[in-house]
Structure formats: C-alpha cells, structure tokens
C-alpha cells in the first residue's frame, strides 16, 4: 500500500453561478493543501461568474481558471478540467455546490488506503437550509468492492444508479483508460452512460463515509428545470448504454437492470411532459416508442411487469403506439 499521500486535482465546472461563487471558493480554500491543485473551468458564464472567480482564485494556492470562450456544456467543462489536471487522484465539484473542511483530504486518504480505482461517498442535498443526506446504496462501507458485483439487482437502486460524478474520487488510471470522459453530445443525463462505462470498465471501487459535499438543489439555472430539447438527451444516453452492454460479456445479465432504468425514465419524462413544447413531446413519444419496440417481447414484459401495474400499463401502451 502506498504510504505517501498522493497528489490530488479538484476539477470544478461552473457556469452562471455568481450567487454561489463565494461559497464555492470558500469551500475550496478550506480544502487547500500543498499537494492539492484546483482546476476551475468557466463555461462562458454571462453573469459575472468568471470575473468573480478570477478575483477569488488569485488568493487560492495551486489554483487556475480555464475559460471556455463559448458555452459547451457541463460535460465539456468537466472534460476540459480533467484534461488539464495533473493529480494522481481526481475529484469533481459542480460550481453551485460547496465543500467542507477535510473533504478532499478524506477522499484522498480513502483512495490511498483502499487502493481502489474510485471511491464514492454520500452528499448533503441542500435546499434553502433544509438538508437531506444522500448515501451510496450499499452497506459495504470502507472496503474494496468489484464494481460488476454491485450493478444488480434490478429492482433496487445500486452503485450503477448512484451516478453522481461529484462526491467521489477517481484514480488517474481511469482517466488514462478513457473511462472518465463525458460524452459532450449529452447535455442532460450525461452521467448515465458514464456511470455504466465506469462500473464495467473499472476493476475496483469502494463506498466510503467522507462527509463534506453540499449539493445545492433548486438552483434556477439547473438544467433539470429547463424545458427544451436538452431534456431529450436521456434517450440518446439510453441507446448508448444498450450499445455498451451489447459489447459486454455480461451484457445479457445486466440488460434487465439497464432497461428498468430506461423504462422508469421514459415514464417519468412522460409524467413531466407538460414542460416541453408540442413538437418535443411528439419527438419524445416517437423515439421512446422505437426504444421500447426494439426490446424483444418476453424481455420487455418481464422488466415492465416488475415495475408495478401503473407503469407497466403505460409502457405497454406506449410500445403499442397507444400512448
């Protein structure tokens, strides 16, 4: 086991988060150390975020600001930051979130002692002072696990569903193997196929209990609240997951799990369809129907039936072209 503490890079992706920049950089400052570098990527903010970041990062040791001249999305911003990083351990933070003291050091220590490809910890969901804890969906805390053993079962949330790129730490090995790269054509749901690639491609992971990541919900600029075509990127992400699984030796075992997530997303997007304009609703209906039809009937029936009568009925109707 390595004894010296490995160096760490903290990659921050920010866009139009001016009200939160002071908290963000304050939290980074509380995690500053000789062997921790901060790579902050501004994705062409228009609200003064970049200027404020520039002012504050001057006083943060081992930090630098990278600017996208044109907005390229969260995935691209993370990719830019990861490409520019040099640490052995990599962390990601979103620009509207913040961290408490000991967070980076705790994850780096966990990586060093456990010797795994990546570790995932919980976070605190923050909504105007009201907070909720979100924890990794496993009780096996603090010991190395084989990622493939923690994908199933389908009917429960597992590590593959715990898709948060933040509140985790990754070995540079994963970046070099191309497993940390985010697909930039997915502007939402970008973490879905990413999580599958990571779980299938990495050799080891550990769930750990390192507190200190605060994830702000209800932010106005948050993509989940925007009703445009970016919402439909989940369809592409689902196709990508199926493709990944089609090439995997255990793909047939995992397919019901992936389909269940996919079906659940189709249903929940249908429920929230009113935020979308008519032509996007039409497109969503068409493409989700194609997705459902491409699943062999026995497999479709067994997955849908496990999701309860209400969702199963909707999915069958959508597949038949009646919903």
């Amino acid at each position: 086991m390595p004894s010296a503490s490995p160096s760490a890079s903290v990659v921050v992706a920010a866009r139009d988060v001016l009200p939160y920049v002071d908290d963000l950089v304050g939290g980074l400052r509380r995690n500053a150390a000789d062997d921790v570098e901060f790579v902050v990527v501004d994705d062409a903010s228009r609200d003064g975020t970049r200027e404020r970041l520039g002012d504050l990062l001057v006083h943060l040791p081992n930090s630098r600001l990278i600017e996208h001249p044109e907005p390229r999305g969260l995935s691209a911003a993370r990719n830019t930051g990861l490409a520019a990083s040099s640490g052995e351990v990599l962390l990601m933070i979103d620009g509207d979130d913040w961290t408490g003291p000991g967070y980076v050091a705790g994850l780096v220590r966990a990586m060093a002692t456990l010797g795994v490809d990546f570790v995932k910890t919980g976070h605190v969901l923050e909504h105007g002072g009201r907070r909720t804890r979100v924890l990794p969906p496993t009780g096996a805390i603090g010991r190395p696990l084989v990622p493939r053993d923690h994908i199933l079962p389908s009917h429960r949330s597992t590590m593959v569903d715990f898709t948060y790129a933040h509140s985790s730490a990754y070995s540079r090995r994963l970046l070099d193997a191309g497993l940390l790269h985010f697909r930039e054509d997915f502007r939402t749901a970008e973490d879905r196929d990413w999580s599958w690639r990571l779980m299938l491609g990495a050799d080891s992971l550990a769930a750990v209990d390192v507190p200190g990541y605060f994830y702000r919900r209800g932010v106005a600029t948050s993509l989940t609240s925007i009703g445009d075509e970016r919402q439909l990127d989940f369809l592409g992400a689902m196709r990508a997951i199926r493709e990944i699984l089609s090439r995997d030796p255990q793909g047939d075992d995992f397919m019901p799990k992936a389909l269940r997530t996919e079906f659940a997303l189709v249903y929940s997007h249908h429920e929230r369809r009113r935020r979308l304009p008519q032509h996007l609703r039409d497109r969503m209906r068409r493409e989700s129907q194609e997705l459902l039809r491409s699943v062999p009937t026995p497999l479709f029936t067994s997955v849908a039936r496990g999701m309860g009568p209400r969702r199963a009925a909707f999915l069958a109707m959508r597949r038949a072209g009646a919903a």
């Binding site: 963000l24 304050g26 913040w98």
Partner: peptide, 8 residues
C-alpha cells in the same frame, strides 16, 4: 451563514 462549512 447559509453555507457555514465553506467558511472558517
């Protein structure tokens, strides 16, 4: 403060 963890 709103994000006390971020300040000393």
């Amino acid at each position: 403060t709103p994000a006390p963890e971020s300040r000393r």
